[in-house]
Nucleic acid binder design. Sequence first.
DNA 1: GCCAACGTTGGC
DNA 2: GCCAACGTTGGC
Length: 163
Amino acid sequence: MNAATARAPHYWLMKSEPDECSIDDALAAPGQTVPWTGVRNYQARNFMRDGMQVGDGVLFYHSSCPEPGIAGIARVASEVRTDPTQFDPASPYHDGASKPDAPRWLLRDVQALRKTRLLPLAELRAHPGLATMVVLQRGSRLSITPVEPGHWTLIVDGLLGGR
DNA sequence: GCCAACGTTGGC
DNA sequence: GCCAACGTTGGC
């Protein structure tokens, strides 16, 4: 990496069902790092493949649960690689149409940095400064969305008070 | 390429 | 469990 190839960090919001992998689960994993398996949407996959860079900031979001919202801070911890669950017939993420010599689905490793207070979806929606957040747009269902630097700062340093 | 049918997401 | 919204599939 040199000055010509370096770029400012990007930021992301990544949804996880806490029943499957909560922020506590991620913090308890070896190296506080988990493979982000199960992404089966091309746009979200492309964000991981083309948009992310090791070190990018991640808002760790709990979805499909009693208290949806941001639960922690993490970072992108690996280059993109094949998601092995697509080839596992026993996995709910199995994709029989994906061939090992041309894997359809990819993942990044994600390292949890810290748990935050649960910042509820309703609080995100209520904040005027976050009105244009991608994840808050009507009909947005993507499990991975980009986060603008200003939104990151507002959330991490503002609403979460840096804690 | 169109588009209806179907499947999935995810908040409520 | 409901349902709005969106993505994918597949016939034509």
